[in-house]
Amino acid sequence: MVKLKINGKKISTKKGSTILEAALDNGINIPRLCHDKRLAPYGGCRLCIVEIEGRRKPEASCATFATDGLNIWTDTPKVRKIRQTVLELMLVHHPLDCPVCDKAGECNIQDLAYEYGNPRTRFIAEKNHALPDTKGPLVELNSSRCILCGKCVRICAEHQGKGALGLIGRGFPTVVQPAFGEALECDYCGQCIDVCPTGALMSKTHKFEARSWSLEEKDTVCPFCGCGCTLTLGSMEGKILRSRGKEDSGKGERRQWSKPGEPMQQGKVWY
């Protein structure tokens, strides 16, 4: 076990875990957009930055090991300022089309902007106005809302072993796309939609069906095959409108291939 201090609170965590993991395990929240516990540390969004006493510069907590004796502060004025700037930068191009975005209400970037946001940007905004890519049958790619956290790309490649999405181009004009900008044709497991922190990847069938807060959600078992994955169904007025895999839901330990919150394949979209 490793013993360290976060925000003055003494905590212990298992060896080899990152500062972010240690904090989350001990009920300390650190804002983040590109982290997923199933994926290798990425260090892209820079929101999980924390100050470590004795270090020259703040460090990304998702990409720094928790080691003995560290004294970490997760919410100093300096750290808050950096988070504010990072969010301000994201909103330089992220359109504020929340009124017509199905993600609104459960959108990570919306929540963070609510907490840290500055309503007036100091910078020259250059909103993306690319039309959504609706070529695929079930998934809609709205690149103008994308903040390039890369979670969809990584979950598809690292976790599902599929690699149907990739980062194309570099720098500011980078986009997430299937190869050669063709229609997304994959197994439609929907993991990319579930991990997307904004409304960049959305279910086509659910588009404009219901606001997220008006859905009543219930966990159930997917009836598609014998694997028994947990599904979370969202319904309104007795009609099922959405299914998704919720993080940490389900009794995944029963079967190796259906881990918590990871419904397999078709079951999800063919409700």
Binding site: G44, C45, R46, V86, L89, V92, F123, G169, G171, F172
Partner: peptide
């Protein structure tokens, strides 16, 4: 132009 686009401060910050 040469930023890889991975992290926000570099990708958008340099452009701004």
């Amino acid at each position: 132009d040469e930023s890889c686009g991975k992290c926000v401060p570099c990708r958008i910050g340099t452009k701004v």
